[in-house]
Amino acid sequence: MAPALAWLTALMVVPCALVLALAFFRRGTYGGIEYTFTLENFGLVFDPLYAGIFLNSARIAGTATLIAVVIGYAAAYAIAAAPRRLQPVLLFFAVLPFWSNYLIRTYAWIVLLNREGLVTQLLRWFGYTGEPPSMLYTEGAVIAGLVYNYLPFVILACYAPLSRLNPELAEASRDLGASALTTFRRVILPLTVPGIAAGAVFVFVLSIGNFVTPALLGGGRFQMIGNLVYDQFLTANDWPFGAALAMALIVIMLLVLMAQAIAADRASGHAAEARSNADG
């Protein structure tokens, strides 16, 4: 155990602590670090400009999360409802793309969406003659890229609780006269909240800290926190401010994880209720 723990401590805990410490220093005129204690970097995080970038990132990440959860849940539901012997195969192929290179999957969208790309070709083939639509370098492209990249995880996270659902619960609910929609809303959904929450947290956390997708699919027109952190370290050479931004990112991550824990906790309460709804 000791070597592994030492490794994690030396190369994760210490560096992260270092970043936290960095955030309290001042940037030198030409980059580098001036060792004077200051809180201004944290103040700067709340500057309307940067706070705005945080909010905008949260909005883009939130939209991607919402879409991924809706599609992913539907897919997971369909897989869980497929014949039993097919389920592992379907699940495997749903998750497989997730393990291919992230950059390549993002690049595929450049190929699809650029003005002379496949989507335009397809439109022309269907007889469209007008100007090719602008799809690449839009917020939509960034969101599509994020959804595409993280969807498999949502499918996986939602499949686990769906596959464990007791079909008798739904039957009982229907026998008691509940509509399919009510059954879904009152019985199935509450029981699968933990899976949804886990999938959503994953997509949100990875999206909000992403810098590759906005850089490649956003054409530099969309600033997200990930890009901002990247810029502070590799462009503006303002490491202390970059460190403060990274810490803010960690705080957001922890808040989201806490929200997930609460949702899962509530869900187990609701689940009991759902069961009694169905049984009673």
Binding site: L5, M12, L18, V19, L22, V205, G209, G226, L249, M253
Partner: peptide, 24 residues
């Protein structure tokens, strides 16, 4: 938490942490 952290920390944060660490 220690074992879970590397799987959930945003890549960019671990990346800049290591960059700072190595260069210091």
């Amino acid at each position: 938490a220690l074992i879970f952290a590397p799987m959930i920390i945003p890549d960019i944060v671990l990346a800049i942490a290591l960059l700072s660490f190595f260069s210091m």
